[in-house]
């Protein structure tokens, strides 16, 4: 069975999805989630009554684009206050193994893959492959060495993962590695991501600041304009 990926949209006016992304995800089962953000004052049921049809029509349009590309599509429409909670819950209910944080893109030449400090990865390479096209020239496996961790350990993680990818059929020239040392894990990733066209990463540990600043994936998508695929952990 194909992996299921969640594509959350902010209603009522979602940003248009790039045809490239739709094409890339076409081999998967896609769950298009429309989250209609509401303030405290408004009960979800009232908003659904009034805006439900229009919102569903907007969702169906996006779903159709995925279906035309060959994907199996389901849609979910949620009215509510807490977007992050809605995404979490629908992802669980629909059995999604990844989430797309969409951003406009015209072509994916360079993909950044921030790695956690383990090398035994199964799910991640599958999603790297999705985004890699003929035009993709560079995939960078990236690791930030922080705290007690030694640089050797970081180098080992990226090198080992690179071996896996090459065994998996990626061209040796296309995959390179980058290890940096820094105290600010997220900042390093953000800074590096600016030079790339897309990011594929594992779901990071939730942090205290997520609610205030947004999750790392949200920040990458917002600040660098790269689409991000967040893969739920299988390590």
């Amino acid at each position: 069975m194909a992996d299921t990926i969640l594509v959350p949209l902010e209603l009522p006016d979602p940003e248009p999805l790039s045809p490239i992304l739709i094409e890339d995800l076409s081999s998967l089962t896609v769950v298009v989630l429309g989250h209609y953000d509401l303030p405290e004052q408004t009960p979800a049921s009232s908003a659904r009554e009034q805006f439900g049809e229009t919102a569903q029509a907007t969702l169906d349009e996006v779903a159709e684009a995925f279906a035309d590309a060959g994907a199996t599509v389901r849609t979910r429409l949620v009215f509510g206050k807490d977007r992050a909670a809605a995404i979490q819950q629908i992802a669980t209910e629909e059995g999604c193994v990844a989430e797309l944080d969409p951003a406009p893109t015209e072509g994916i030449n360079r993909i950044l893959v921030p790695l956690p400090d383990v090398a035994e990865l199964d799910r991640l390479p599958r999603f790297i492959r999705l985004l890699s096209e003929d035009s993709t020239q560079r995939i960078t496996l990236f690791h930030v060495v922080e705290g007690e961790e030694s640089r050797e350990r970081g180098e080992a993680v990226v090198a080992e993962t690179r071996e896996h990818l090459i065994e998996d059929g990626f061209g040796p020239d296309a995959v390179d590695t980058l290890v940096v040392e820094g105290d600010e894990h997220d900042e390093e990733i953000l800074r590096t991501a600016a030079d790339y066209d897309a990011v594929v990463m594992y779901e990071p540990e939730p942090r205290l600041g997520d609610r205030v600043f947004g999750t790392l994936a949200d920040r990458i998508a917002d600040e660098t304009g790269d689409p991000v695929i967040v893969v739920s952990r299988d390590y």
Partner: peptide, 14 residues
């Protein structure tokens, strides 16, 4: 019960 299209709040009730 009308929800304001811009603010998404039940404006008239408020």
């Amino acid at each position: 019960q009308t929800i304001d299209a811009r603010f998404k709040t039940p404006r008239n009730a408020v």
